[in-house]
Design a protein around this nucleic acid. Sequence first.
DNA 1: GTAATTGCAAACGCTTTGCAGCGCC
DNA 2: GGCGCTGCAAAGCGTTTGCAATTAC
Lengths: 158, 158
Amino acid sequence: MRKNHVDQSLREHLRETFATYIKSKNMRQTPERFAILDKALEQKVHFDIDELYKDIEGEYHVSRSTVYNTIELLCECNILRKHYLNETQAVYELAEDKHLHLICLQCGAVKEVDGSVVSEYLSGLKFRGFHTTFSSVNIYGLCSACSRKPRKTQKPKT
Amino acid sequence: MRKNHVDQSLREHLRETFATYIKSKNMRQTPERFAILDKALEQKVHFDIDELYKDIEGEYHVSRSTVYNTIELLCECNILRKHYLNETQAVYELAEDKHLHLICLQCGAVKEVDGSVVSEYLSGLKFRGFHTTFSSVNIYGLCSACSRKPRKTQKPKT
DNA sequence: GTAATTGCAAACGCTTTGCAGCGCC
DNA sequence: GGCGCTGCAAAGCGTTTGCAATTAC
């Protein structure tokens, strides 16, 4: 499973960013919040709340509500981004990453490919009355496995 | 509310497409299925299952299950497309339409803008081991209303 | 000390499912 | 006439909410 490659200095930088954001909103720096940030940086490129929760469970005592709550904070301060790739649940990724999502219409598999060129192209677009923060590109079609056997319904594999 | 402009000839063409698809799968041409197609063509650019259901309710006796079922068929045969713009529910639009979604991070409002240039650019991209059907671009940021009062939480509209 | 935060469990809302009866082919 | 489709109601499941207990500041 592809993982994020977050080195020590980026990790510290993000922790600092988060701490600053929390303070700026007069909120509290609880151990749960920093534990969740740490775990979020260790997830694979895409992860959902449940994956993070299962991962953190053994190590700390943290409830699902707190995970939801904290992940939202991490999105607000631009450390994570939330994507809706299918209807079952939202997935999150590091805001640093710039990739496109190739989504199989047949089996639901999501693959990430480098999207730095496309991101640059899109960031050049301006829209009246709208201030862009970031953009997200989803490309739908058939993955190689489903192209080979187009009639079969297959299980999603992330 | 912006509506789709589906003229008589397009309507008939899509009805034919749907009928052909249904026959090709050895399924039945029920009145419910065609009623739902008709109503889908009358919706605004984006609509969700509930909007279509509420709209069709007075005129025909059709259950929610049938609406879900039929809308999925319409996606399979490329008349509609399903988008996940937020976590509460999927929205649908005519596959013919090519537009980008401007999504406000603050209030959740979704605005459609012409995306034919971007669509053309993206359709030029090829990916190893992936056969593209269509692509979807979501641009996140702040709408003009929320830019003016960036601290307020507002109700989604659309 | 005290107000924000947490954990728990219940509530919520969209979607899916099971099944008896209906109706298209 | 048989089998697929429909409608209904219940179940499913990710997410949100309410509240008492905890804890950061």
